[in-house]
């Protein structure tokens, strides 16, 4: 390499990025209630304790329901908006799309609180469905961004070629467009799922008494005795995230390879 200094810095930076995450399994497997050095011994008991926790299992179930619903709805809404924005011109296009993408540049607290104010005023009881409402709101911009780039990389003449060869609008969409944007749909689902699973503020304030995983973990951190079990849970979540992201990345690359585009890298 031409510049060893820069390379050393880059590796140092990666260590900074990964330091907290590497500590997760270290202390999740350490036989001590206190998270500090020196390490005292190896144990699986935090994983067992975590596994035996009923309220954790309930929070996990809630999280999965919320994340699946939010990612499916957000991707469906994103699909419509992305197709409309890449294929048609219509009045107030900039304003409408701007509103849909607005949650990207709004502090989450403000999204959560303003929605909460309306829900309280209208009298909607809080629960999983209200978390889903909020999560769809913040996931949709990501879905729109991912799917717009999937639609944009489609050559418009592919669709015309299908018409030219005798297909109607619906069969052209089914035979040509849908297969080519499927990788985009899959990666949108996965990324929305991950965002929803991870999100805390909306889940915390719009959930009422329903606890999803992130809110549950947050609550448990108040009790020092529960910390090692939470680190064990964190270890599992990290592994899960890495798996999901690898799958998403795989589909994204396959999508690029299919449409014959160039890999520009990155999720955003």
């Amino acid at each position: 390499m031409k510049n060893p200094g820069l390379r050393v810095y880059a590796i140092g930076y990666l260590i900074f990025l990964y330091a907290p995450i590497i500590l997760l399994p270290v202390f999740a497997l350490n036989d001590s209630k206190v998270v500090s050095f020196p390490l005292t011994g190896f144990t699986f008991r935090w994983f067992q304790e975590m596994w035996a926790d009923d309220s954790l299992r309930e929070a996990l179930t809630n999280s999965l329901i919320v994340a699946i619903c939010a990612s499916v709805i957000a991707t469906a809404l994103g699909l419509l908006a992305a197709r409309a924005s890449t294929r048609f011109t219509f009045p107030a296009k900039g304003g409408i799309l701007g509103l849909i993408m607005l949650p990207l540049v709004l502090p989450e607290m403000i999204v959560a609180m303003s929605l909460l104010m309306v829900l309280l005023a209208v009298g909607v009881p809080l629960g999983k469905h209200t978390i889903i409402m909020g999560h769809v709101l913040i996931c949709t911009p990501f879905a729109v961004a991912i799917l717009s780039s999937a639609f944009q990389s489609l050559d418009k003449s592919l669709e015309e070629a299908a018409y030219d060869l005798g297909e109607g609008p619906i069969s052209a969409f089914r035979l040509i467009i849908l297969p080519l944007v499927t990788p985009g749909i899959v990666s949108s689902l996965l990324i929305c799922f991950t965002i929803s699973l991870d999100e805390f503020i909306i889940a915390n304030f719009l959930g009422g008494n329903t606890k999803v995983l992130s809110a549950y973990i947050y609550g448990q951190f108040r009790f020092p005795a529960k910390v090692p079990a939470m680190l064990a849970l964190g270890t599992i979540l990290v592994l899960l995230s890495i798996t999901l992201l690898s799958i998403a990345e795989y589909f994204r690359r396959r999508g690029i390879a299919k449409t014959g585009g160039k890999d520009t890298g990155g999720f955003l």
Binding site: D155, S157, A161, I176, L180, T259
Partner: peptide, 11 residues
């Protein structure tokens, strides 16, 4: 039609 980009279905 033969399109300028050829519009060969990539999948």
């Amino acid at each position: 039609m033969v399109f300028q980009s050829y519009a060969i279905f990539p999948h």
